[in-house]
Amino acid sequence: MNLNFIPPVLIEGEKVVELLEEDVARDNAKWVPSIVVYVVGTAPSIGAMERFISEQGSFTIKPIILYHKDGYFIVRFANEGEKDKVLCSGPHYLMRRPVIMKPWVPEFNFKDEILTTIPLWVKLPNLPLNCWNAVVLSTIGSSLGKPLYVDECTSQVNRISFARILVEVYITRPLSKMIKMHDPKGKVLEQQVWYEWKPIFCQKCL
């Protein structure tokens, strides 16, 4: 990889490196089918992580696993479909510890995100059947955090006891146990929220 001199931009007399959309577009596309993986409380070896990922299913190309010294892994898959398959197969545990998985995004920052915003699988028991669609589930999920996915049984309505969605939540705040909903006739419904795993956030050490 050969490099060239590209003069920095001067803004109010200060040198500023200006990154253009076209400069990062190719690498953005390269890393989109990737997830960030963090094992709570410990950092397993690369070999342990490779075995863990291989157990999640079959892949067209062996996923690339990279370790960051801050204690997390980047796992890059051949395509977004394989990435989504692993993301939606949780919750996961490795060495009896919870595994946190997040889609990689260009602005990802480990210390800002992994330790405070975590994707959690949420069950909505006895959800009315006319609410099992992307719009309503997105609306419900948005009251908890940032909705990401529903599992296959929910999208296909193969199981009607509860809907199951993956929501990215801020664990620095109390997790809602109940959601109030108003149906089209104005009736108030109280929807229970069950979390498959609840992280414990320490206000002292963060």
Rank of each mutant, 00 (worst) to 15 (best):
W132G: 12
P106M: 08
F108P: 01
P128F: 01
S138T: 12
T117Y: 14
L115M: 08
L129S: 08
L124Y: 02
P125F: 02
T116Q: 12
A134D: 14
F108N: 02
K111T: 08
W121G: 01
T139E: 07
P125W: 04
P128Y: 00
P119S: 04
I118P: 01
N109K: 09
I140N: 01
L137I: 05
N133Y: 15
K123S: 13
N133G: 14
N133I: 13
T117F: 13
N109C: 11
L129N: 04
V105Y: 11
K111P: 00
C131P: 00
L124H: 00
D112H: 09
S138W: 04
P119F: 00
L129T: 04
C131Y: 15
W121Q: 05
T116E: 08
I140F: 10
A134G: 10
S138F: 04
L127K: 02
P106N: 10
L127T: 04
P106T: 05
P125A: 05
I140Q: 02
V105T: 13
N126S: 12
W121R: 02
V122C: 01
E113W: 06
P125M: 03
E113S: 12
F110N: 05
P119A: 05
V105Q: 13
E113C: 07
E113G: 00
I114E: 09
A134E: 14
D112V: 09
L137Q: 08
V135P: 05
V135L: 15
P106L: 08
L137G: 07
C131K: 09
P106V: 05
E113Y: 07
E113M: 11
I118F: 00
A134N: 14
P128I: 00
P125D: 03
K111E: 13
P119W: 02
T139Y: 09
K111Q: 11
V136E: 14
L115S: 05
V136A: 15
C131D: 08
E107H: 03
P106E: 09
P119Y: 01
I118H: 02
P119I: 00
A134K: 15
P125Y: 03
W132E: 10
N109L: 11
V122F: 03
V136F: 15
A134H: 12
V136N: 12
S138Y: 05
V136L: 13
N109I: 08
L124K: 03
V122G: 03
N130Q: 11
E113T: 11
L127Q: 05
T117P: 00
P128T: 02
L129R: 06
C131H: 11
F108W: 06
N133M: 14
I114F: 03
T117G: 00
N130K: 06
I140G: 04
L115C: 07
V136Y: 12
I140H: 04
L137Y: 10
E113N: 10
E107K: 01
L115W: 02
N130F: 11
I114M: 15
K123Y: 11
W132A: 13
I114N: 08
V105E: 13
N130G: 06
C131F: 15
W121V: 06
W132M: 14
W121I: 00
L129V: 06
N126W: 03
N130D: 14
V136W: 12
V105G: 06
D112W: 07
L120K: 02
E113L: 09
P125C: 04
V105P: 02
P128H: 00
